[in-house]
């Protein structure tokens, strides 16, 4: 009977995991592709993420943030991949955790951008250092709270705010530069 119980629990776990994890698939894939910037690598990343998550699902604490847990697995998987290691190595480490919420010199007029300039914006996001890019995407695309982003990236909320600020500043500067040229 113990065996029967184990089998039932295992099946329950697998079906619960599927119910929780599959609705996140599209977002996770998008995020993975943004990080890896390559379709094949993004697929490998997502596949590994789901495999790891299923394996470690028993260690997931019910009641805690499943979405943040899944993103954390994906992001950690990425950071240990070759592309991830290269990307994080190029990350400017100076003043990484320094609060920098200064808006910089840009003026409102200089960065007016609309939907037709998505391509320009996408290129600018791609060019962001990975730690800025991931914070920005989690905030703007996934609409995560600062707390959730902090959980996902395993960093303090202050660092989340700092990275978001620097990401936006870099993005505005990049856009300003690109818009000035067009």
């Amino acid at each position: 009977m113990v065996y029967l119980k184990e089998v039932l629990e295992e099946r329950l776990t697998a079906s619960t995991f599927e119910e929780l994890a599959m609705p996140l698939f599209d977002q996770l894939y998008n995020f993975a592709h943004w990080l890896a910037q390559d379709r094949t690598e993004a697929e490998d990343l997502v596949q590994e993420t789901y495999a790891k998550a299923l394996k470690g699902f028993s260690s997931f604490q019910p009641g805690t943030n499943f979405r943040a847990w899944m993103y954390r697995i994906l992001r950690n998987t990425f950071l240990t991949s070759r592309t991830g290691l290269r990307a994080s190595a190029s990350m400017p480490l100076d003043a990484e955790d320094e609060m920098e919420i200064s808006a910089g010199p840009e003026t409102p007029e200089s960065i007016l951008i609309d939907q037709s300039q998505q391509q320009l914006l996408q290129t600018a996001i791609e060019a962001l250092p990975v730690h800025f890019r991931e914070a920005l995407l989690l905030c703007e695309v996934e609409e995560m709270s600062y707390q959730e982003i902090a959980e996902t990236l395993s960093i303090p909320i202050g660092t989340v705010m700092s990275r978001l600020s620097r990401a936006r500043k870099a993005l505005r500067e990049s856009l300003q530069h690109k818009l000035a040229r067009t």
Binding site: Y29, N30, H33, P108, Q118, Q122, L171
Partner: peptide, 19 residues
Amino acid sequence: LSRLQLKRTIHSAGQRYSS
């Protein structure tokens, strides 16, 4: 207004990839 516009654009531009 400008930041909100950028935010919205990032939101839609960020949903770029589908499997």
